[in-house]
Amino acid sequence: MMFSPEIVMAAVLNGVMTGSVYALIALGLTLVYGVLHIINFAHGAMLTAAMFAVFVGHAVFRIDPYAMIAVVAPLFFALGYALQRWVIGPAAHGSESNVLLVTLGLSIMIENALLAGFRSDTRSIDVPYAFSSLDLGFTFLSVPRLVAFGVSIAVAFLLWLLLARTDAGKAIRAVAKEPTGAELVGIRVEHVFAVTFGLGAACVAVAACLLMPTFYVSPRIGNAFVLVAFTIVVLGGMGSIPGAVLGALFVGVVESLSGLFFNESLAQLGVFLIFILVLLLRPRGLFGAKA
């Protein structure tokens, strides 16, 4: 099957836009892995919870989803901080399998509490700009997706600035490299762990605000996104931030291009198959960093 360059070009552009939101979700996951060396299995459930928060904010208080960033990002930062500081950290007793089981327990609780509260229906919000687009000559670019792209890149850049240029970032990097050494020079490791976890949660909260104008939410939606995010993080190398961004853009483009060739119902299956293949064939990541 052949497609004109315009169509392929449009699919690539769309893929980059989608990939940028994936990047935000994957950034949260890889940041937590890079610093705490744990896989947060509740990442997807947190995304779902944030999407419902945006939904409720719009349905009940008529707050614009983009304006909700100012509400849910700090809220989820605080929630993430509290979860790591007072639930996951103490409950896990420092063992990897415990962390996995505790975060699994949390994700079961969050998902099913949402199911109990909202039932399994899919919900979306109506915003006037959902279908507005820019004419590029050869294709139309959806405005909400363009906003998502811009905000994602901005957040990734801010995160990089925070890590590279501030004292807090220096402390986070120190803890990531050598927790015991960091503790010895007076860094409060538990606090840094919790701040990192909070940043990860804030990333999914922003992603939720960017997704809601064009996407829908249901209690189990987080699973699909989180497996995409895991795929990206494994591709990019666990703990690597540039790896996560590049991996996300790559996956976004691949997904968008394969949408041209395969039918829609296979997309869901594709996410899981690609994840399995990536894990089985290349557990160390395409961009170097060791898993």
């Binding site: 409950a91 327990g105 949390l106 079961i108 609780m109 099913n112 109990a116």
Partner: peptide
């Protein structure tokens, strides 16, 4: 109400591990 039992199972999982 769907999901309530699983909420409790998740809570129990966290409590037992802790």
């Amino acid at each position: 109400i769907p999901g309530i039992d699983l909420v409790l199972f998740g809570l129990l999982l966290v409590l037992v591990i802790a």
